[in-house]
């Protein structure tokens, strides 16, 4: 699946979660390049001003300082330059209302951060596979939330 190097952007203010993410990527042996930002302002600054290769996918935490994930998602989806960027929401909490709102706002997938590291790895691999395999149009609502057990077919 990984024909070319995947350009991954992670926006998360939590150091531990960034470590988990990086560790998971390293262990998955994917050809990927990870860029990490720690708040929403940094993220938007990077996305708007970066003239280099734009990322293939953005993993976006919701609860971030200065500008939260909700605001970033809205800005990305309203921007002509960025609205094609697949955004995968990566959050600790899972609330139906919030998930519905995110789906409406145009997020590609929703992932609840798993508590097992092996699941953490699986879910990242699965979501990256989905991004590589499928086109970037939004999936149906029932496939919006990626759960660990669905990753069996990878």
């Amino acid at each position: 699946m990984n024909i070319k190097q995947l350009n991954i952007l992670l926006a998360d203010d939590d150091t531990d979660d960034c470590i988990f993410f990086k560790k998971a990527l390293d262990e998955l042996l994917l050809s990927s390049h990870l860029t990490v930002v720690h708040d929403g302002e940094q993220l938007m600054h990077l996305l708007i001003n970066e003239t280099n290769e734009s990322p293939d996918v953005l993993f976006l935490d919701l609860n971030m300082p200065r500008k939260n994930g909700f605001e970033c998602l809205s800005e990305i989806k309203l921007s002509k330059k960025l609205n094609q960027l697949p955004v995968i929401i990566f959050s600790t909490s899972f609330e139906q209302e919030v998930v519905n709102q995110l789906f409406q706002n145009g997020a590609q997938y929703f992932i609840r951060k798993p508590s097992e590291f092996s699941q953490f790895k699986k879910i990242i691999q699965h979501s990256l596979a989905l991004i590589v395999q499928e086109n970037i149009s939004q999936p149906a609502r029932e496939n919006f939330v990626i759960a660990v057990q669905n990753s069996l077919f990878i």
Binding site: D16, F20, K23, F117
Partner: peptide, 19 residues
């Protein structure tokens, strides 16, 4: 809501140690 995050991290670190 705020209790969830540290708890999840404890779980993840334990799973890393066990692996």
């Amino acid at each position: 809501h705020d209790l969830q995050e540290p708890l999840r991290k404890i779980q993840t670190f334990v799973s890393i140690i066990l692996d």
